[in-house]
Design a protein around this nucleic acid. Structure first.
Lengths: 235, 235
DNA sequence: AGGAACAAAAAGTCAGACTTATTTGTCACA
DNA sequence: TGTGACAAATAAGTCTGACTTTTTGTTCCT
């Protein structure tokens, strides 16, 4: 599941990071490096490295004579994959899931449009293959196989868009989709309408129809948002 | 301009980070901590902390018996504000600027729609104020004052959307807008059509018309993309 | 009350010794 | 010739202790 974190320093991060993102230490809390080092039973060098990483994520700020101050949520680097993972694993998972799904609803349609304009023949083929895989596993409670193709589909869309910022969201989307299957309840087979939409997006991309690809993808993300409204309580 | 980086460790980062993101060390290059420490005339502890931070940005990977390996661009945490700043300051500034503008074109319209639905009275007022400030400085080569209001406008849109992922892009948008004014050439006053659009967006938000706010913002970002196509050479 | 000098606290820095994992090379054996 | 195990080399990882620097809060003097 989550990376255990290589090295002592990684282990400390894997404990302290989730604790902070979970709000265990409220913003403004002050920690001392030495105490943390004692608590985790590591040397100060190791502790300092961990603090440096947390600082680079803007989760904390280290100041002389003061200590390590926990920063307010609005300062956090919420796009850091590690931070995303920590938050998804923690208490405000529902909230985070909603934020990310809204983000998807903004990004993916535009990405699909670009993909329709830029995709290579191979990428088109790959996309079609993914869509077919989704169809093949859309009935009979083969959710796991379906998920794999679903993730691959969206990853291709984001990568083939040719925009590096979009491409880098592949992991995030994967995490959101996987979360839906694994954590949130999914009794039935996936929505047939959604499956059809994916096939149609692949079609539109093959035909280079950017407008249609964008519009269809927008429908997919709207569906995802509606599904989320049903599955997780809206705050 | 760019943060000098507090502490020795920050100074090292401020030199090594830009060098890596500029592609000075091609992907796969191997560096050794000891050599780097000597080169920068700092202790190994300091150097290690810097490497840890670069590692958390996925710019490099540190492995025993091997050294510090530079990772390929596709692994980088391109949403890290620091990485964005380094890249904007470096050689592939045009490419980065285009990526970010496309990102804006995906995010901002959706954010504006949400803002129209969620904005408080204060936020509406603030938005209108920004738009008026833009109008007031749209003629007579008062680019600097115009820029301030432009940045504030988009920051309000992103913040008032209520989505933390959108809100966190405020700094990025600010950097892009500032770059347009400061680095790229801007002979004339801003495009009058763009100014009008901003005013209209503020109107739509006040009226709670999400669809119109989204559509108008889309027109703004389309304009920004076209402007970019003119100002910087498309690769 | 205002300001300057002082003391304490915590992060920052450094140097050196030691540990551990990983790679690479070697040598024997099949 | 190829393949296995074993040994050596190497660079990161870890720990410790001493020292420096900056910031904050206090105290004392005017």
């Amino acid at each position: 599941m989550s990376t255990p974190g290589r090295g002592l320093h990684g282990h400390v991060l894997g404990t302290l990071g989730p604790a902070i993102t979970a709000g265990e230490y409220p913003a403004g809390s002050v920690l001392r490096t030495d105490e943390l080092a004692q608590h985790f039973e590591v040397s100060r060098s190791v502790m300092r490295e961990a603090v440096r990483v947390l600082e680079s994520m803007h989760l904390v700020e280290s100041r002389r004579r003061v200590g390590v101050t926990v920063l307010p949520k609005c300062e956090w680097n919420v796009y850091d994959p590690q931070v995303i993972r920590w938050r998804l694993a923690g208490a405000d998972r529902p909230h985070q899931l909603r934020s990310l799904t809204v983000l998807r609803s903004a990004i993916e349609p535009v990405a699909a449009g670009l993909t329709a304009a830029n995709a290579t023949a191979e990428q088109c083929a790959e996309l079609t293959e993914c869509a077919l895989g989704m169809v093949a596993n859309s009935r009979g409670h083969k959710l796991e196989a379906y998920l794999i193709h679903d993730i691959a589909f969206h990853r291709v869309i984001l990568t083939a868009s040719g925009n590096e910022m979009f491409a880098r969201l592949g992991d995030v989307v994967a995490e959101v989709l996987a979360g839906r299957t694994h954590h949130e309840v999914m009794f039935e087979d996936p929505d047939p309408a959604a499956v059809t939409l994916h096939v149609q997006v692949a079609e539109a991309v093959r035909e280079g129809d950017a407008t249609r690809a964008e519009q269809l993808t927008r429908e997919i993300t709207v569906g995802a948002l509606q599904e989320l409204d049903i599955l997780v309580p809206k705050s």
